[in-house]
């Protein structure tokens, strides 16, 4: 089994979450330093007509920059980009972000599968994908694509997730995926993670 210490040359992080996403991200993202060395791309399922965007909610708690992605924006390190409600988020070969209005996938727009599959296609083995809590199967096909491209897939421990269906589905779909607690994920991103996640 792949271990955390084998993570090398990570160029970007993608995160997918649904039910319980705000609580999980509120634990994962705030400890990150302002100069976190990677771009983080996030797709979460939230109702499109929420008055306050999840990005502005989290920006208030975080030191890294948190924003909704704009079309053809370059993905910069130290920044968390959320897929805007009602748009899929994708990555282009030149590491710019693209939005799309095409049909919902897994009844979801944004869809975690769409983000992960397109990021896997571009970043290949230098991608770290994280699947968090959720009550559906979105993200499982994406996790499989990341694994097949040689990327690393980490999954929130199903028993510690608010909703375990999404982590379970990702672990089942991606043989190389590794379950991990939120605390360990945070730890990986921080102290131990700093050295490992930095590009050599």
């Amino acid at each position: 089994m792949r271990t955390v210490t084998s993570i090398r040359h990570i160029e970007a992080v993608v995160i997918g979450a649904s039910t319980g996403a705000i609580a999980a991200l509120s634990q994962l993202l705030p400890p990150l330093p302002q100069d976190f060395p990677l771009a983080i791309l996030v797709a979460v399922h939230v109702p499109a007509d929420q008055p306050h965007s999840i990005a502005s909610l989290l920006q208030a708690k975080c030191r890294v920059r948190v924003k909704e992605a704009e079309d053809k924006e370059p993905a910069h390190s130290g920044t968390v980009y959320f897929a805007p409600p009602d748009y899929h988020l994708l990555v282009e070969d030149d590491r710019r972000l693209s939005l799309s209005n095409e049909e919902p996938v897994n009844y979801s727009r944004p869809s975690i599968d769409v983000l992960l599959e397109s990021a896997a296609d571009v970043y290949r083995d230098s991608l770290l994908a994280v699947i968090l809590t959720g009550a559906n199967h979105d993200g499982a096909q994406g996790a499989r694509a990341v694994g097949r491209a040689g990327g690393t897939v980490l999954v929130q421990h199903p028993h510690s997730a608010t909703a375990r269906m999404m982590p379970d589905a990702a672990l089942a779909a991606c043989p190389t995926a590794e379950p991990m607690s939120l605390a360990d994920l945070t730890d990986l991103f921080l102290s131990r993670g700093r050295g490992l996640l930095c590009r050599p």
Binding site: H88, L90, E92, S100, E102, D121, V122
Partner: peptide, 9 residues
């Protein structure tokens, strides 16, 4: 056209 989305379609 943007490749990422076109590839999917």
């Amino acid at each position: 056209y943007s490749r990422a989305s076109l590839k999917r379609r």
